[in-house]
Each structure stands twice: as C-alpha cells, then as structure tokens.
Design a protein around this nucleic acid. Structure first.
Length: 634
RNA sequence: GGGCCCGUAGCUCAGCUUGGAUAGAGCAGCACCCUUCUAAGGUGAUGGUCGCGGGUUCAAAUCCCGUCGGGCCCGCCA
C-alpha cells in the first residue's frame, strides 16, 4: 500500500534513474541514491525536486545545471506531469494539479479510516510494555509521559498492521511494596476516603518517615522475603494492596483513553519459575559464570568483557562483572528482567495462567497473570518494545547483550528500548518516597492535570457561547482537555528532558491539541453549511477536478497525499513527534486554504467541499494515532 | 575514570537516521483583520554566531574529531 506521495516519489526516482542510466552509463549512481536525492522543495520550485545532477557533475565533469537540464528534457512525461524544469542544478517536477488531486481524493475516500495505514507489520506481534508504575502511588506527570508514549506508539504500530499486545508490568514484590506492607502494620489505620492510589501514595510518604525514625530496614527485608513465598500473609497483602492500587491507576488511564491487554505480575513470574529456566539457559550457554574468586565469588555473573562487542558502555575499566544471582542465592533485578524477556520473546514457555479482569471501555478485555485461570497466548512476540526512562539505558543494554551471549542474538536485536527523558518540576523531584509528586498547591498527578485541563476547556467552551446543550459542552470540554495534554506530551521527541509547567501543559493555542480539534470542527461546519453529502455520485464527478488550482488548495492536497509516509517514519523510529508535527502542518495549511479561498463561494464548491472532506478524514486518522479524538463543534 | 542523552529565535520546540536551494512552527512583543463558511483563527513585520573550535565535502544544524555547559548511568538496589 503506497501513499500517493510515495508513488509519485518512486515514479520520479525511476524516471530519473532511467535517464541517468542512458546518458551516463556506469556513473555508479544507483536507484537508492536517486531516491535519496528527492525532496519536497519550497513551492515556488515545484512539487518534487532532485539534487542528483549536483552529485553527477563531478563524475560526468559537467556543470550541475547542464546535467539537470539534460535530465529535465529527457525525462519521461506522463499524465501526471505538468512540467519538469531545471533550476540551480536541481531537477524540479511540477505535478498536474487536477490529476494528482484525483489520485489523492480517491486514495483517501477508498481507504477512509484506514487512510495513511500500511501493511508493513504484516501481522507480526509487538509486545509493548508501559508504563510499569509501582503499585503504591497514583500516576504522576512523569508516569504520564511514559503512558502516553506507549499508548500512541501502540496506535501507530497497530495502524501499520502489527498485532500489538499492550502489556503492563506490575512489580508487586519490590522494596516499595514491602515497605508499605510493613507500614500497614505499623501506621495508625486511616480510612480510605479518596481514590485508593492517591491514599496509598500519601500513606507511603508517611511510611517513609516512620521507617527512618524506627530504623526498620531489617524488619522490611523480612517482609520482603516472606512476600516471595506464595500464600504467606505478606504475599497476600502485597498482592491485594497492589491490585487495589492498580485498579485505581487504571481509572486514571481510562480517563485518558489508555488501555492494556495484559498485566504481568512479578509474583506470577516468580511462581511460574521462569527464573530457574532462564538461568539454566544462561549457564548452559556459558553466558553466565560462577567466579571462584574475586569480589563476586559465589555469585552467578555475566562477564562484561565478553559483551564488549555490544557497545562502548561495556568498556568500563571499573566493572568487569555484573552480578546476576547473589551469593545468598537470590536473584537481582537483571536476572528477573532477563527471564521476563525470554518469556516475552518466546524463548521460555511460561506456565502463566490468566484471569479476565473484565471488559474495558474500549471494548477489549483486560487480562492479568494469575495463579489459576485461563491459558492465553500472550508473549512469543516478534518485537518487544519497552517504554522506559533513559536512566535505564545501561540495564537495557545488559539485557540485550546477555540474550545475545545466551545464544539469541536475533531475539536480542528485536528488543527496542524507547528511552524518554524524565519529567521534573521546578520545585525538584517527583519521587514517591519524599512525596514530591504531591506538590505544594496542586498535586502533580495525572488526575489533577486532567482535571485542570478539562476545567480550563470548560471555561473556554462556555465563554465562546457557541454551544447551548450543557451536557454537550461538558463532553466536548473533556475531549479538549485530554487533547491539550496529549499533544503537549507527544509533540516533543522522547529523549528531551522536560521541566513541567502548568501553563505549557495546558496550551490551547497555536501548536496545540485544541487548535487541531478546532480546525476539524470548523471544517465540519463548512460541509454542513454547504450541504455536503458525500463524493458526487454523478457520472461526471471527475469534472470537479477542473476546479483544482495550484494555490493553497493544492498545498493541502499534497500534504494530505503524504500522510502515509509520515506514518511510516513514525513507526520506523517509534516516535510520535513526527505525527504531531505533520498534524500542525496539515491544520495550518488548511487554515490558510479556507482563509484564502472561500469554499462555498462559486462553481469550485464541489471540489473544495470534497477537499475539506478528505482533510477531515486525514486529520482525524492522524489525531487518532496520538489518542486524540475529534468533536463536531467547539 | 568510562559510557549515554540534551544544547537551534527572549521562551517552548521541530528539523539531525539518509548532508542539498534564503534554517521552520508556536508563545511573548509590534502593526493589521470579526455585517462575508466559528477570532481556540488569519495576515504582515520583527526576532538565529543552529553552544564553541577544527575537519571531511562542490555543499554541514545534519557526518567525523575535539571542547564547554546541563542532565543521567556505571551496586551482591529495584
């Protein structure tokens, strides 16, 4: 499935390559180089441009202008070609606006909600993990970055025909949970008078203070140990409390329109004995060793010197071994992660059972690993995507190196770490331990952020007095609030560190979610006023293309024709910012179009309404990839 | 000591994978545009040593080397 822009680009490349082959045989310029030389120039130069003549000039010992003009003259002409001209050494292609418009309009109308999609994934399974927040506090604005990235990347991959499994990892056996189990026995009982994750997060801050006062380290490590034994009071309490917390966190997720397919619990990984199987593979393959002497004697370690081929990170003069299993026989985090990834990639068959936790608002059931329940076929993924903070790059590298050394280099290569910069606030850290997420005036939680955004949207919607129905105002405002937040998060590339500010997170103008939604609503209104009723079914419907010009309407047509290439780029780089960027380009081009050309004015009406229609389809498809919905009016 | 990331307009960012024509948006500020399809909008002007210094190249924000500033990682923590 090629997008219109891609087809034209490929055609242009092959046409140029044919001329080059004929005029300059043996030049060494191949098709890939020609394709690479093609770009979209400023509109005064045309619609597509190739710089190949500049490259050829040295080989051919002629000026770029001479070569470009030679290529322009000899280039094959088709119906689609209006003109091919040389300018400044470039070969510039100008498309026939009527013919190309028809191609784009047909492509959008044929594909509809699938316009921009492709089959690149070919049904391969992607297991994507996000946000893996510890189950002892509400999602804060940093966790939200993870969740929104994961959600949007999932949508993009799904659009590219991957079979996407959205997985969340729940660490119910971590130190933080042990601390809160300990706290529940030592703190005075307080009633749960608010959302459970919020309540638990606040308790956790109190627990931390008390732990320090009482010097409770030894007691807590005892709790942690007992938590790992199935059936103990501690294990049951940990799981129970974690589940309540995750349920509350998932209310937040649902409010943002974020859903998962399966939760994997650390306690179930332990019970399913994944670790033993994984370690056996590690030892048998020689990836894991037992040093007889040195500081790590008695441990099971990975030899970092053997991992040098996997990156400079392992050329560390200070560390030559990574401990995988401690001398007391307990497993480190890395060990568990290795086992888990062996499961994700289908290297280990786990005896996971799954409980159906019920239908979510998106119509998909949520499953959770459990001690008993159904058998399901989660895992066995072709590609594993982990949305994890940049701080964990090194552990992720170790994981991949270890899988390679254990004999699975291809599987290791199919693990993708989408690393994102941490979100911070002026006042400091968002840590759960210190309670930094609680803020001073307003808590930095995903819940509060959404509330604030929706409050602001409600004020703006009421103020504009465009809508009468109050329930409609409320539902529209909710969408707008969500959109504002999502767009602000997803428009920046993930590695960029972010210092959170309320004013920029709640941006409603310019490059923003609400601006895009406004553009959509505005377009819809034009069609409504114009009495648009679908592409003209008349025999002579092709006549509408006579109205196409090379003005702002064609700028919009070209941009719409390029949606598919944008999606491919986003999927290839696991990045959402290219979509956001494109959407801004699209909406502002649309604004220029309708400001400069009256849609319902004259005999061009049919054509222009159809253009507005395909614009709406494209915009809504692209916004959907960011998890942003559309509204009819605002 | 070693490694990774970030540095582009006053502010927030895109562009860097794969080098190409005068480096793009938004916000703020300036001047305009609501009797004409919704002003959450549009137009115009202003604003840039692409951190800095070298190198490669016909051509560098983009590639290479060095350097400065900021952040992160390198544990028998998770």
């Amino acid at each position: 499935m090629e997008s219109p822009s891609e087809s034209v680009r490929l055609w242009f490349a092959s046409a140029i390559a044919a001329v080059v082959e004929k005029k300059y045989p043996g030049s060494g310029i191949d098709n890939a180089q020609v394709l690479n030389s093609i770009s979209v120039p400023k509109k005064e130069f045309g619609d597509l441009s190739s710089s190949i003549a500049i490259r050829l000039s040295k080989i051919a010992k002629k000026s770029p202008r001479e070569i470009a003009s030679e290529i322009s003259t000899a280039l094959e002409r088709t119906d689609l070609v209006k003109e091919v001209l040389e300018a400044g050494g470039y070969v510039n292609l100008m498309l026939d606006e009527q013919k190309y418009s028809k191609i784009v309009f047909d492509a959008v109308n044929t594909a509809g909600k699938k316009y921009g999609a492709n089959h690149d994934g070919n049904g391969r399974t992607v297991l994507i993990e996000f946000p893996a927040v510890n189950p002892n506090k509400p999602w804060h604005i940093g966790h939200l970055r993870n969740a929104l990235l994961g959600d949007s990347i999932s949508r993009i991959l799904d659009f590219c025909s991957y079979n996407v499994e959205r997985e969340d990892y729940i660490d119910d056996l971590g130190l933080q949970i042990a601390e809160i189990v300990w706290g529940s026995r030592n703190l005075p009982q307080e009633p749960v008078n608010k959302k459970f994750d919020q309540w638990l997060g606040e308790q956790y801050v109190k627990v931390n203070r008390m732990m320090e006062e009482r010097n409770a380290k030894a007691e807590i490590s005892e709790v942690l140990k007992r938590m790992e034994e199935p059936g103990t009071l501690e294990a049951v309490a940990a799981r129970d409390m974690s589940m309540k917390c995750v349920r509350a966190q998932y209310e937040t997720a649902a409010a943002y329109g974020i859903y998962h397919d399966v939760m994997v619990w650390e306690s179930d990984i332990v019970h399913a004995k994944l670790l033993d199987k994984a370690l056996k593979i590690g030892i048998d393959s020689g990836a894991l060793e037992r040093p007889a002497q040195g500081k790590n004697a008695g441990c099971l370690v990975m030899n970092l010197d053997k991992a040098r081929e996997f990156g400079k990170a392992f050329e560390n003069p200070n560390e030559h071994e990574k401990v995988i299993v401690r001398s007391d026989g307990t497993a480190t985090y890395v060990a568990k992660d290795m086992a888990f990834h062996m499961w994700k990639l289908g290297i280990l068959d786990a005896d996971f059972r799954y409980a159906n936790l019920g239908m979510q608002a998106n119509g998909v059931a949520l499953y959770s690993t459990a001690s008993k329940g159904e058998e399901m076929d989660f895992g066995r993924a072709d590609i594993v995507v982990n949305i994890i903070g940049s701080a964990q790059k090194y552990p992720q590298l170790i994981l991949k190196a270890m899988l390679s050394l254990a004999g699975y280099p291809k599987k290791a290569a199919s693990i993708v770490h989408v690393a994102y910069g941490e979100v911070s606030v002026d006042s400091g850290s968002l840590s759960g331990r210190s309670g930094g997420w609680m803020g001073e005036e307003k808590a930095y939680t995903a819940d509060v952020l959404l509330e604030e955004a929706q409050k602001k949207a409600l004020e703006a919607t009421e103020k504009s007095k465009k809508i009468d129905d109050s329930s409609k105002i409320s539902s529209i405002s909710q969408e707008i609030g969500k959109a504002a937040i999502k767009f602000e998060y997803l428009r920046v590339s993930p590695e960029k560190p972010v210092v959170f500010s309320w004013s920029s997170a709640l941006n409603f103008e310019g490059n923003s979610g609400p601006y895009c939604m406004y553009s959509y609503a505005r377009a819809g209104r034009i069609l409504k006023k114009g009495g648009y009723s679908g592409m003209a079914k008349r025999q002579d419907s092709d006549l509408i293309y006579k109205s196409a010009t090379r003005g702002q309407d064609f700028e919009l047509v070209k941009l719409i024709g390029g949606a598919g290439e944008v999606v491919k780029k986003a999927a290839a780089g696991y990045t959402t910012s290219v979509i956001a960027d494109y959407v801004i380009d699209l909406t502002s081009t649309f604004s220029r179009f309708y400001e400069s050309m009256h849609v319902l004015g004259d005999e061009s009406k049919e054509y222009r309404m159809e253009l507005v229609h395909i614009y709406m389809t494209t915009l809504s498809n692209m916004l959907a990839l960011l998890g942003i919905g559309t509204v009819d009016e605002m």
